[in-house]
């Protein structure tokens, strides 16, 4: 096994351990009585840290060219946000229709 491969394996096992620790922390926080706003913020932050670790280290994005990273991140998050925005607008319109208020 080359030195580079051994180093990569070390990084992967540490990332694996970190992901498990983060998951355990999320489970622990779930058992605490925290204010809803703080709970949601902490959980979403932990979720994004885990997702970033997987994308950057397991999926090697940290070693890819900036062009590829920007394309992947902007497209995924940008289209995701656009989709969410469109769904919210459409769902809001449906909700208003259900309430008997038809909005053109």
């Amino acid at each position: 096994m080359s030195t580079e491969t051994a180093m990569n394996l070390g990084v992967y096992w540490r990332t694996w351990a970190l992901l498990l620790v983060l998951t355990a922390v999320m489970f622990f926080l779930d058992t605490l009585a925290m204010p809803r706003g703080i709970f949601v913020t902490v959980m979403l932050t932990a979720m994004m840290i885990k997702a970033t670790l997987i994308a950057m280290i397991f999926m090697h994005l940290s070693k890819e060219s900036t062009d590829l990273v920007v394309t992947v991140v902007v497209c995924s998050l940008g289209f995701g946000a656009l989709l969410y925005e469109l769904i919210v607008v459409d769902a809001g319109r449906i909700y208003q229709m259900m309430q008997g208020v038809f909005v053109r």
């Binding site: 394996l9 992967y12 096992w13 990332t15 397991f58």
Partner: peptide, 13 residues
């Protein structure tokens, strides 16, 4: 998560 780590190891090897 563990299976993802073993897959990363497979790619490295």
């Amino acid at each position: 998560i563990s299976s993802s780590a073993t897959m990363a190891a497979a790619v490295a090897m």
